[in-house]
Design a protein around this nucleic acid. Sequence first.
RNA 1: GCGGGGAUAGCUCAGCCUGGUAGGGCGCAGGAUUGCUAAUCCUGUGUUGGUAACAACUCGGGGGUUCGAAUCCCCCUCCCCGCGCCA
Length: 425
Amino acid sequence: MLDIKLIRDNPDIIRADLRKRKDEDKLQVLEDILADDAKWRESNIKADELKARRNTISKEIASIKKAGGDASKQLDQMKDINDEIQKLDEDTRYLKDSVDSKKMILPNILHESVPVGEDDQKNVELRKWGQPPEFDFDLKPHAELAEDLGIADFDRAGRVSGAGFNYLLGDLAYLDLAIINFAAEFMIGKGYTLVEPPFMLKRKPYEGVTDMGDFEDVMYKIEGEDLYLIATSEHPMAAMFQGEIMDEEKMPMKLVGFSPCFRKEIGAHGVDTKGLFRMHQFNKIEQFIFCKPEDSWKYHEELLANTEEMYQLLGIPYRVVNVCTGDIGNLAAKKYDIEAWFPRQDKYGEVASCSNCTDYQARRLGIRMGKVGGKEKTIPHTLNNTALATSRTMVAILENFQNEDGTITIPEVLRKYMGGKELIQ
RNA sequence: GCGGGGAUAGCUCAGCCUGGUAGGGCGCAGGAUUGCUAAUCCUGUGUUGGUAACAACUCGGGGGUUCGAAUCCCCCUCCCCGCGCCA
């Protein structure tokens, strides 16, 4: 959410940004906000004046009654004033609600380094690491490979839970845990605090942490409860300090969350639709930082470097792209995607997404920051990046490290988490 | 799930019975004083509108009664204690 003062004082900044985002529809939302905000202030001022009169008369009544006098004239006046106030308050409230809900629709202000473009085709590649491996045999789709090895059962999962779910069996389940342990240990070593958050959130904090658009189509809801299964541990970590004033002495707060992630929308894209690439449920280790505003760009690079280092240690080729204005989403001021090499698709595919949300997410959540007991308050910045999502990391491992005989070589850094095992066979 | 107790500014507590428009302490900020960054004293402290003066709002949330609600009544949420259930 943007600061209403920025919207009032510098609407041109926002207009220019919306055009860069190709989000022309929201230009009208902005105009509506400006109009309703002006009307709200007018209505609010009128109501305030009447309330001031009401307070004066009320004090008169109190002193007259105390003196044992007759206050019937004042009581009559109060009736009329109260009627008028009630009407004005209704308008004021309506206008305020309108402004508040429309403010949630406007996206964050983009950083100047974000490339302009309408979709992911215009994302700008910043660098590549590693050589895509050459194979002198036909690659198996990762799902087929896993089924042949008896380490995944998609069909039975489909029968009991539906498409988009899976049973990981034996070494693949072990590999999943190994990836989690590797990522957790790596991040803890970097000074991040491991967090296992609630896996469900109430709606209100959920609307604060992200812009879900059509909530019902994206989130799994618990029937009969005000609870939604989380789509990533970013969400409960961001919501953790909802409505609070965070201690600036404790900044930066660096967290690494572990959780399963639940997502309704998985749709089919490209080759090898069956398998682990798009799932309704997967495990993920996620980086999250609360920091002082002046430090957030530094930490944005740190979060990116952490994920890059992990993919380098795993030996999986990847590239980093600067996500363009049309593909960046509402929350981030700037976003890098880390894309791993997927040999079967013969291209790089997203495995991590590194966002600086500046003060946008924190403002939505009502999070402020200051000295304990102090008066000065600012809004902290929030940043997030995937550390490792097990599902896509496993796909990358299965594809990049498969052998002609259908076995899979386990990346060296993961072996100590799998009892020293070197090969899945 | 049942019974009891709670929710008041960053923290902590008073006010509620008996309605008259929120107060103390801590913390924080500024100032005074002292040979000092200690002690003491003074002022300020949340949100919104306003250049400001100032005004309005604010006692977990929503309704109601009343000229007037932190206070009385109803509903809801969350927390604590006990009981029940339970990995």
